[in-house]
């Protein structure tokens, strides 16, 4: 058992437009591997399990401690971070695929740009830049800080987007991650100055109404972001705004 190699079946794709194909690899087992370090072994010696020299497998990663969100992939069918997928926990038979809701750049590397576009769309920032110093902002209640902190842990890794049945090519839904960020910036006393604009974006096509309540998002989120609770909270905010806010116009 202890010298049984780590066997990988990887779904590869050479260019964004080419067809995917499967390639198998075998990496000698050493204790303490994670999926990233196994991929690094392949990179050092890019030979597939049939002994053929091949191109090294491409993937994306940065932090290696599950805070950056770059190494999201399908590992044995489920979406998660490769860096925190420990071989000693998940076993030595691995199937790696790129996540399916974003365009593949190459192999396991996808372009999560759509998610950042959505963050821009909902106004997921606090505009404080001006031509003069505007001084200190209002104070924030500790209770709101705590709630905000849990939402701020989102690393736009795309796990919730991948598992959401309503986020796909046939729907215009912007997905759970960008949607719940509206709550974070509306909670902030300075951010709240743009509250109505953010709520209005969530009322547009692709907004919060397209959530289907399957609640996969909260189950797969590696950062324990309270997605479903926040979506319900935002539903309340948006509904009240949709009824009473719009009647002011």
């Amino acid at each position: 058992m202890s010298d049984k190699p780590i066997r990988l079946k990887i779904k590869r794709q050479n260019t964004p437009d080419s067809s995917p194909y499967w390639e198998e690899f075998s990496v000698p087992y050493t204790p303490g591997h994670n999926v990233i370090s196994v991929l690094m072994e392949i990179q050092k010696n890019p030979v597939n399990s049939r002994g053929e020299k091949t191109s090294p497998v491409v993937w994306e990663c940065n932090c290696l401690e599950e805070v950056c969100g770059a190494c999201t992939m399908l590992i044995n069918g489920g979406v998660r971070q490769a860096c925190s997928a420990l071989i000693d926990k998940i076993g030595r038979e691995l199937t790696l695929e790129p996540i399916t809701k974003f365009p593949v750049v190459r192999d396991l590397h996808v372009d999560r740009g759509k998610m950042f576009e959505a963050l821009k769309k909902v106004g997921a920032w606090i505009p404080i830049d001006g031509t003069y110093d505007m001084g200190e902002g209002p104070r924030m209640a500790p209770k709101d800080q705590e709630e905000g902190y849990r939402l701020a842990k989102c690393m736009t890794c795309g796990c919730c987007m991948e598992a959401c049945p309503q986020y796909n090519s046939r729907s215009s839904f912007i997905g759970p991650a960008p949607t719940v960020q509206v709550r974070l910036f509306n909670l902030h006393p300075t951010g709240a100055m743009n509250r109505s604009e953010r709520l209005e974006t969530l009322m547009e096509k692709g907004g919060i109404a397209e959530c289907g309540n399957a609640q996969n998002c909260v189950r797969v989120c590696p950062k324990e972001v309270p997605l479903t609770k926040t979506l319900a909270e935002l539903n309340k905010d948006v509904d009240l705004y949709a009824i009473f806010g719009m009647l002011k116009k």
């Binding site: 598992a163 309503q166 796909n168 729907s171 309540n213 609640q215 996969n216």
Partner: peptide, 21 residues
């Protein structure tokens, strides 16, 4: 129409609420 905008993934993510969905 809503049914058509969804993409069933219950076999990959077999959580209770996903089945209910």
């Amino acid at each position: 129409y809503i049914v058509c905008t969804g993409q069933v993934n219950t076999f990959r993510y077999g959580y209770f609420r996903n089945w209910m969905y």
